[in-house]
């Protein structure tokens, strides 16, 4: 069974996002990039399937992005993935999610997988588009925001539990399929020291535009994109907080009055 995991590298959750002085970009200088937290659940899920199946299951991690994504691929290798594929070409610069999905679908088609896992969204652009679009291009089912996942005995199907507003959907899935992972699916493992040493020596396969049949420079990167970020804005600062004084009973009464009479939200 061949399992592919799509991983992305994103600014660490602790990062304070600063805009460039002209407001048209994000300052990446000094920003620490890590594996997208939701992708960690995907890598862990893949490794657990591999451990359960034992026979010839392989886990391949795939990441599209500039050279810094190699570090994230090595993290996945150190966790226990078998192979890593780095997808990048200068022509890919500036691509939006749907454009990148077109590239990733070609890569996946080329390698061939029985199951493709990913995080439910990147915590950078929070779009939740890439994996769904990959599934569409491959013509296979997708199930997103999954918090439980079981593989059938014959390894041709899955049962997933998908989180929706106010509940869960239980979904039967025929493989091959794309599944995206939500927090709660599992506890991602840490890379072991031997794992880290081994990962350092592993060769990472590189795939560029010339390796992908049917795609030209016009289809990818900013040229192939249908959306464009034209600028960023900081969030408006709230006026300073009004502290309510007095005994707790007084504070409670004053707060309720303020919510009712000043801000009129009650």
């Amino acid at each position: 069974m061949k399992i592919g995991v799509l991983v992305k590298n994103v600014p660490d959750t602790e990062t304070k996002i600063k805009l460039t002085s002209d407001g048209t970009g994000i300052e990446t200088q000094g920003v620490k990039f890590v594996m997208n937290p939701f992708d960690e659940y995907a890598v862990e899920a893949a490794l657990q399937f591999k451990e359960k199946i034992k026979d010839d299951a392989t886990v391949t991690v795939v990441s599209l992005g500039p050279d810094r994504v190699v570090e994230t691929l090595r993290t996945a290798l150190a966790m226990g993935a078998d192979d890593a594929v780095h997808v990048w070409d200068d022509a890919f610069e500036g691509g939006d999610m749907l454009t990148n999905a077109r590239i990733l679908a070609k890569v996946i088609e080329k390698i061939g997988f029985d199951l493709i896992l990913g995080g439910k969204q990147g915590i950078d652009y929070d779009a939740m588009q890439t994996c769904a679009a990959v599934a569409e291009h491959l013509g296979i089912p997708q199930v997103q925001i999954v918090i439980a996942l079981e593989l059938s005995e014959d390894k041709t199907a899955l049962v997933a539990r998908r989180r929706i507003e106010g509940g869960d959907e239980v979904v039967d899935i025929k493989l091959p399929a794309v599944v995206t992972c939500e927090k709660g699916l599992n506890e991602p493992r840490y890379a072991s020291l031997p794992g880290i040493m081994k990962a350092k020596k592993k060769e990472i396969k590189k795939i560029g535009l010339a390796d992908l049949d049917g795609l030209t420079a016009d289809d990818v990167g900013s040229m192939g994109s249908t959306t464009k970020i034209v600028g960023y804005e900081s969030l408006a600062q709230r006026p300073s907080c009004r502290m309510l004084e007095g005994e707790p009973a007084q504070q409670a009464a004053d707060l309720v009055r303020a919510l009712r009479e000043e801000s009129k939200v009650i």
């Binding site: 996002i17 950078d124 652009y125 929070d126 034209v230 960023y232």
Partner: peptide, 17 residues
């Protein structure tokens, strides 16, 4: 206008097609 980086900033985005 859409929040990005989990709502740390807003991005102004346009369609180009």
């Amino acid at each position: 206008k859409r929040p990005v980086f989990s709502g740390k900033v807003y991005a102004n985005v346009v369609s180009t097609n």
